[in-house]
Design a protein around this nucleic acid. Structure first.
Length: 283
DNA sequence: ATGTGTTCCTGTCCGC
DNA sequence: TGCGGACAGGAACACA
């Protein structure tokens, strides 16, 4: 599911249900995710007040009164659903499969927050709030696209020493935190940049031009509630709708929509991931 | 030190 | 309709 816009959409949906509220009960129904839940997670969550819900890259961070922080990653198919015992919110046939409800949190208000993840690539961990940024999963992450540390000079410098294709470099969370396969493709299409070009061989001016494009694409996607291809849901079960605005991702064989371009979108594989781009207007 | 390929798991879709 | 294979919003890990 989740790149930055999807995770941010989920965070915003969780906020009113969780921030400032106490977790009165935590139930772990399945422990064998790709990475097991931390020791005694249910006990460590039970009774804790949620002080703050924030996001770093594709992680949701839940700061608790115990001075521990719950780290949540949604992997490929993870969902966090608020009060979805009532499935009437699902207006399509993709209501969650309850066999994949791995964690259920009950808030003092009676609201339930459910972590559902069919593929089990998602993860949770607990870390001292003070040391959260130093957690091994967070320590190596690049700057936030909407943060002050991310600007033209940073990106030009960071990419000037990468010999991998620009698409691969943008996907690398050490370069910039939060881009995934969809938005890397969409950004490069909007920039008119060939995803196969070596990052260190692209003119600085064109790399600098990526900065506002990255911010714009991500912001538009957040405003649309993210992209729902298969698994992504907002916390109320509703779909995101940015997938309708895709210019490249998933459009193999379809005409390029760049004004004045009569090319077609192609699909190639880079580092094991599909890349969609127009061979005509992306240079 | 960088680069890419493999792997985890379930679900869905497409061609035979 | 059944079956096999490809593929899916990620990223840690192993290996060149």
């Amino acid at each position: 599911m989740p790149e930055l816009p999807e995770v941010e959409t989920v965070r915003r949906g969780l906020q009113p249900a969780m921030e400032g509220r106490r977790i009165v009960d935590a139930e772990v129904r399945r422990v064998d995710l790709r990475r097991p839940f931390p020791e005694h997670m249910a006990e460590r969550l039970r009774g804790q007040r949620v002080l703050r819900l924030h996001r770093r890259a594709k992680y949701i961070l839940v700061d608790l009164g115990s001075r521990e922080t719950l780290l949540i990653h949604l992997g490929m198919s993870g969902r966090l659903l608020v009060d979805m015992a009532n499935q009437a919110h699902f207006h399509d046939d993709r209501a969650p499969d309850r066999r994949h409800d791995h964690v259920v949190l009950r808030m003092e208000t009676g609201t339930q927050v459910t972590f559902n993840d069919a593929r089990r690539f998602g993860l949770m961990d607990l870390v001292a709030t003070e040391r959260a940024e130093a957690h091994p999963l967070l320590a190596g992450l690049g700057p936030e696209p909407f943060g002050n540390a991310f600007d033209e000079s940073y990106l030009v410098h960071a990419l000037s020493q990468r010999r991998s294709p620009i698409k691969t470099a943008l996907l690398d969370q050490r370069t910039i935190a939060g881009l995934g396969n969809i938005y890397a493709c969409e950004v490069l299409h909007r920039a008119g940049l060939d995803p196969t070009r070596r990052a260190d061989r692209i003119a600085a001016g064109r790399i600098a031009g990526l900065v506002p494009i990255i911010r714009a694409v991500l912001q538009e996607a957040i405003d649309a509630g993210g992209s729902s291809l298969r698994d992504h849901r907002q916390t109320n079960g509703e779909l995101g709708y940015f997938q309708h605005a895709f210019q490249a991702y998933g459009r193999e064989g379809e005409p390029c929509r760049t004004p004045g371009c009569d090319g077609a979108i192609r699909r190639i594989v880079q580092s094991g991931r599909s890349t969609f781009y127009c061979g005509k207007c992306q240079r």
